[in-house]
């Protein structure tokens, strides 16, 4: 069931996430709610979809039990701010951030980690 009202395509299950990161070289997933720290990140991702055609952009609902793979990821240890944003390269976590990020912070990570 979709839980987020964002234009960024939502991943609903852990197995779907697994499949996506294994089938695509570069994937960014914003795992959050519909709150003030998360919406600006989804908004930026929506815009970047056209500019970063080599990256796939997805959202995932933080409160879904299926999002445990992200909530409990070792890269997210110590994270205490929504959203948890994951950057995957060839199926591996290349970077993860906690809390709101602006466009420049996101594009810097994309340019460095998901070339």
């Amino acid at each position: 069931m979709k839980l987020l009202q964002t234009p960024v395509q939502e991943i609903e299950t852990a197995s779907e996430l697994e499949k996506i990161i294994n089938e695509n070289e570069n994937v960014m997933v914003c795992c959050g709610r519909m709150g003030p720290m998360c919406i600006p990140v989804y908004d930026t991702m929506e815009e970047l979809q056209d500019e970063y055609e080599h990256v796939k952009f997805y959202s995932m609902a933080f409160d879904s039990p299926e999002a445990g793979v992200i909530r409990n990821a070792p890269e997210c240890r110590g994270f205490m701010g929504l959203p948890f944003t994951m950057y995957y390269k060839n199926g591996e976590v290349a970077h993860a951030t906690s809390s709101i990020q602006n466009r420049q912070q996101i594009t810097t990570i994309l340019d460095e980690k998901l070339k």
């Binding site: 709610r33 709150g35 003030p36 720290m37 998360c38 110590g78 994270f79 205490m80 701010g81 929504l82 951030t97 906690s98 809390s99 709101i100």
Partner: peptide, 15 residues
């Protein structure tokens, strides 16, 4: 920021 500092209680309170 995000690992202890927050600007939104409704977002991050439950952590």
């Amino acid at each position: 920021k995000g690992t202890g500092i927050s600007y939104c209680a409704t977002c991050d309170g439950d952590f």
